[in-house]
Design a protein around this nucleic acid. Structure first.
Length: 322
RNA sequence: GGCCUGGUCGCCAAGUGGUAAGGCAAGGGUCUGCAAAACCCUUAUUCGCGGGUUCGAUUCCCGCCCAGGCCU
């Protein structure tokens, strides 16, 4: 990997509707790059409308490959990685994205890792190092049926130290803690995985953040929500249900869950669209909360006249320094 | 003009003579293999306005204003 060690990987991040993809497409054209999407929903096949893989408007040429899309002839990796009922963790993503990054660099092209899933990005870059404990689905299934009190009891008995250090209101956290603790207790190495992630070095990452004032962000997101309801979200959701994915976590998440509700009663379309907008707003807030932690991000305000030019200069400078 | 009902946080809304539930929205935050997930915190010294009764009124009484409904 020596020959590539000086290459920069550009990470384009920002909340939904900040224009990451369209900017990245631009950047690819300009700097001979390829995009890796860091988005925990776009990894799913058959979910194109509700995850924003399909750009709004008709000025886009889309070609779908087996494990990539090409939009306006630029490569986007990280779409359609798994079926909607498949488990896919931040670790899986990091593994995929890291190897894809190396492939792209070997072709002497520039990597634009762009997305809004901060957790994925941080695991990819190594800012967050995951523990060696793999998910234990059997255990999770068993634990899922327990009440919060029962979960608390279990972790308290198993490991009081962990008990006092985690969020005891959050069943998911407790279950994960139990999962880890059970490895420690039982020495069950079936669920131990060495972290074999092949990180690049931290200096190779250049973070580009897209800043958009809240009110503008909300109205852009609202517009997007309206357009997907007009352009096939309901139909796509219906198809996913027909395919047997009705009970998957993805369909219970934001966007799709409201469409599922609508399909059940076909009533109050407008208020469901409203609800979806509110869901998106709070998602945007959560994303921004996450991004705040990373002080290496260089933020660009997209409402500024010359924001693109500023980004070009910024990239140019970093490529040259590389 | 008369009668009735109602005016409680940006919206919906409960409430009682004893010092203002809840939901939504908004804002802040947590997060170390489910993350568009899961979870936590904050937000009316104040109940249309004025006066009265009372130890004490958002709650009772009087007047006014506003909204909706009905009647002539």
């Amino acid at each position: 990997m020596e020959g590539f060690s000086m290459s920069k990987v550009f990470i384009v991040m920002g909340p939904t509707s900040s224009g990451k993809t369209s900017l990245s497409l631009d950047l690819c054209r300009k700097y001979k790059g390829e995009i890796i999407s860091a988005d925990s929903r776009q990894i799913y096949k058959y979910m194109d409308v509700g995850t924003g893989k399909l750009p709004i408007g008709d000025k886009y040429i889309i070609e779908k490959g087996n494990d990539f899309w090409k939009i306006n002839r630029e490569y986007i990796w990280g779409y359609d990685l798994v079926n909607p009922n498949q488990y896919y963790s931040a670790y899986d993503f990091a593994e995929f994205a890291l190897s894809k990054t190396k492939e792209i660099l070997e072709k002497n092209k520039t990597v634009f890792l762009t997305g809004g899933t901060g957790f994925y990005i941080d695991v990819f870059t190594g800012r967050i190092k995951l523990s060696a404990s793999k998910p234990n689905f059997l255990l999770r299934e068993e634990l899922d049926s327990l009440s919060l009190e029962e979960l608390k009891d279990r972790i308290k008995k198993l490991n009081p130290k962990i008990y006092s250090s985690i969020d005891l209101n959050n069943p998911r956290r407790i279950i994960r803690a139990l999962e880890k603790a059970s490895i420690l207790e039982n020495g069950n190495d079936k669920y131990v995985s060495k972290n074999t992630l092949n990180y690049l070095t931290a200096e190779e990452y250049v973070y580009i953040g897209l800043y958009v004032p809240r009110n503008i962000l909300y109205s852009r997101a609202d517009k997007w929500v309206e357009s997907i309801w007009e352009q096939g979200l309901v139909e796509e959701t219906e198809k996913l249900i027909d395919m047997g994915y009705g009970n998957t976590p993805v369909l219970k998440g934001i966007i799709y869950r409201t469409a599922v509700e609508y399909l059940r009663d076909r009533k109050n379309r407008e208020s469901k669209i409203e609800k979806t907008k509110f869901d998106i707003h709070s998602y945007i807030r959560r994303q921004q909360t996450w991004f705040k932690k990373n002080t290496d991000i260089r933020w660009f305000d997209i409402t500024e006249e010359k924001y693109k030019e500023n980004i070009y200069n910024f990239i140019q400078r970093n490529i040259n320094n590389g």
